[in-house]
């Protein structure tokens, strides 16, 4: 079989952990209808990275990520202030913060690297990530963050779940909304920050959104969703890095995102619950039946139509769905069964 090189093992382990934890975290975020918050925060991290570098002059990943963390946190605070004090729609505020913060980051970067254009190589690393260059220390860092996030998630599982499903009830139960909201934001931010290193800013959203969306197609139960999202995320992460390492010059982040996209697509199309294919067929069939048996349904809802309407019903009379009794149109047993069947398609 394959012999996995040490580097590849490292990378696969890293992306597996990242995929699993962001998939689980994403379950909360997507249900809270803030799926794109990850996208906004990831972009907003850029100026923080640059400022951290300007202040320390060190290229050390962990230090730069601390800058990223504060920058993303600032973006989140600004978003909340805008939401609280204006009528601006949240998605508009998010779009502006995402792009505006990124612009500030680009300015800082071009200032650092002087001469405008040379900066772009460094930036594309931020945008698309660079999993292939991970070393043991990076993995340790990711493992620690992922583990802490996982423990926090389990510790506050009950509260998080309640908050996601019913914020009003949560408040009414006397629980601290600010705390749980802050906790959620902080956890998402942390995960995004470690994700940027691996898959980059743009595709981080795939890791947050893809797994929960796919999981949602497979199960209606929250706990199962959470588990499935973790499994799907972890699998795509590890599998993605494996494929990208074996393929010719395949970038890791995009391969993971592509894989996730395929998984989402397959679940959307074929989910036994409400897959597009099953739904489309059933809806077509339902519509067809309703159209075909329109008159029969009408008779069922309005019993006792006089036989003078028989002209409209000759098809159904011919097929023994309807008979004429005492000068009235009557549904036969066959007709009643047919109606039951039509209704049952849903």
């Amino acid at each position: 079989m394959f012999e996995l090189s040490y580097t590849l093992q490292i990378v696969m382990l890293g992306t597996l952990m990242l995929g699993a934890i962001s998939g689980m975290m994403g379950t909360f975020v997507v249900l809270r209808e803030q799926a794109l918050i990850g996208d906004a925060l990831a972009h907003a991290a850029l100026p923080g990275i640059m400022i951290a570098f300007l202040l320390t002059g060190i290229r050390d990943l962990q230090i730069l990520l601390i800058g990223a963390f504060f920058s993303a946190l600032l973006a989140m605070v600004v978003l909340n202030v805008i939401k609280r004090y204006t009528n601006i729609k949240f998605d508009a505020a998010m779009a502006l913060i995402l792009s505006g913060f990124f612009g500030v980051g680009q300015v800082l970067m071009s200032h650092i690297q002087k001469g405008g254009t040379a900066s772009q190589a460094g930036l594309s690393r931020f945008i698309l990530g660079q999993a292939a260059t991970m070393v043991r220390r990076d993995i340790l860092f990711i493992a620690v963050v992922a583990l802490v996030m996982f423990l926090l998630m389990m510790l506050f599982f009950k509260e998080l779940k309640l908050y996601i499903f019913d914020q009003n009830f949560f408040k009414a139960s006397g629980l601290n909304e600010r705390f749980i909201n802050g906790l959620l934001t902080m956890m998402v931010t942390f995960i995004i920050i470690i994700g940027i290193r691996l898959v980059g800013v743009i595709l981080m959203s795939a890791l947050i959104i893809g797994p929960p969306v796919a999981a949602r197609q497979l199960s209606n139960r929250f706990n199962i969703n959470l588990l499935l999202a973790g499994v799907i995320g972890g699998f795509s992460g590890a599998m993605g890095s494996f494929l990208s390492a074996t393929g010719n010059n395949l970038p890791t982040g995009p391969v993971i995102a592509f894989l996730l996209g395929i998984i989402v697509l397959v679940t959307l199309l074929f989910s036994p619950k409400n897959g597009i294919i099953k739904q489309t067929i059933q809806i077509k069939l339902y519509r067809h039946h309703i159209k075909k048996y329109r008159r029969l349904i009408h008779l069922y809802e309005n019993p006792g139509l006089p036989a003078s309407h028989a002209d409209d019903y000759h098809y159904f009379i011919d097929h023994a769905y309807v008979c004429i009794e005492d000068g009235q149109l009557r549904l036969t047993d066959k007709g009643k069964r047919r109606i039951k069947h039509v209704k049952a398609v849903r």
């Binding site: 743009i202 893809g210 982040g253 995009p254 996209g261 959307l268």
Partner: peptide, 22 residues
Amino acid sequence: NHIKSDASIGVVFTFLFSISVI
């Protein structure tokens, strides 16, 4: 599939974008 607008945006754009980068 009754996916909320922001989640569907996230699913669609990351998928198409990853294809172009690949």
